[in-house]
């Protein structure tokens, strides 16, 4: 939902990095996007394209690696992927209870948005 603000953060951060190193162009930006964030990869790519019209960023590629979510159970110690509902209407909403004992789980992975690497051309 806030793909626009996330894309702006990426663009600003990458522009800063390029100018710090005196690069002529940014070729590639690699992002790790947690499965359990509220950011849609396709929309993020689209917003990045819209926002990267600056000559230094134009034609740069945004590569998104989706990081699978992981939850851990406070009661039985289960650790693993969150489960999703059977209901087709709600199939994208994860269930935050333990698939083994149904106790509440904590999210330990999958809510991150990381700029992992920037490829600069000089």
């Amino acid at each position: 939902m806030h793909e626009f603000s996330v894309a702006s953060m990426i663009v600003e951060r990458v522009k800063g990095e390029a100018s710090k190193h005196g690069a002529r162009k940014v070729r590639r930006v690699e992002i790790k996007l947690g499965e359990l964030t509220l950011v849609n990869p396709e929309q993020l790519k689209f917003n990045y394209m819209v926002l990267s019209q600056d000559p230094i960023l134009r034609d740069s590629e945004l590569i998104i690696e989706v990081i699978p979510g992981e939850v851990s159970c406070r009661e039985c110690g289960f650790r693993g992927r969150p489960t999703y509902r059977d209901d087709p209407a709600l199939h994208l909403a994860p269930i935050f209870s333990c698939p083994v004992c149904e106790s509440p789980v904590e999210v330990i992975k999958g809510r991150e948005i990381v700029i992992s690497r920037v490829t600069l051309e000089f």
Partner: peptide
């Protein structure tokens, strides 16, 4: 061409 490793959480 150089790769810069950032690993920064936005």
């Amino acid at each position: 061409v150089f790769d810069i490793e950032l690993e920064e959480e936005l």
